[in-house]
Amino acid sequence: MLTAGIDVGSSTSKAVILQDNKILSYSIIPTSAESADSAQRAFDKALDKTQFISPDDIHWIIATGYGRVVVTFAKETVTELSCHVKGANWLFPSVRTVLDMGGQDCKAIKCDGQGRLLNFTMNDKCAAGTGRFFELIAKVMDLPLSDIGELSLETDDEVRMSSTCAVFGKSEVASLMRQGRNKSDILGGVHTAVSDRIVTLLRRVGITPDLAITGGIARNIGIVKRVEKRVGCRALIPEEPQIIGALGAALFARDRASRN
């Protein structure tokens, strides 16, 4: 049976096509101003990759993510909170806590052995704890986003950030650059400040091992290492951390389709 999950996030839209218990294909594209259009394009792209599946072959489609309600071709919606734990727990059955950090929010989610949502807490009010903040910092420091995590670890004298508000943080970084501070020391300070926020969020739901990190941030080794150190356990990182929400949605679609 073929099912699909579409995750319309603030920065990227993702689609996963699932055949029973196997990921057949997936796609990740930037979300444009038209979320509905992005959802469609992500879905089309994932279908194209399979080369033989047409939309009519898909039994059930579930949409998730902040733009889930605009996905008119989906049969139903499930929140990204439920989808992330569902997807992460399917990949790593030992997972009980998921940290997901996307472009615009950061969530700490707990689940049971079947990947069912037990509790969650979110930060979506403050950009300083989100992927967007790192984009801003990379830009102001004129560095590729993919490099900053690694660089942040190459310090033994990291700066102490006086502010972790995204707007102030950005200007603080700019002024540290003007003072000629070493880039790794600055990045070390930025990553430490964000990790502290993340860990506070995680502590609010309680950290039950195993912990998985999903979303774009899982690719940032500077954050992963610092979070691991603070919570005192290794984090499981999916090979493709950005598609876990869409994967969870496709898994929900599979469950619903087999029930109907």
């Binding site: 902040y66 919606t77 499930v78 929140t79 990204e80 909170l81 439920s82 069912r116 949502l117 037990l118 509790n119 969650f120 979110m122 979506d124 009010k125």
Partner: peptide, 22 residues
């Protein structure tokens, strides 16, 4: 207040309740 963010939390809360009762 952000209606979308609040509704996402409400949806997830309902999913949590229903998962608990299922």
């Amino acid at each position: 207040y952000s209606e979308g963010q609040v509704k996402t939390r409400m949806d997830a809360f309902v999913e949590r309740l229903l998962a608990k009762n299922s």
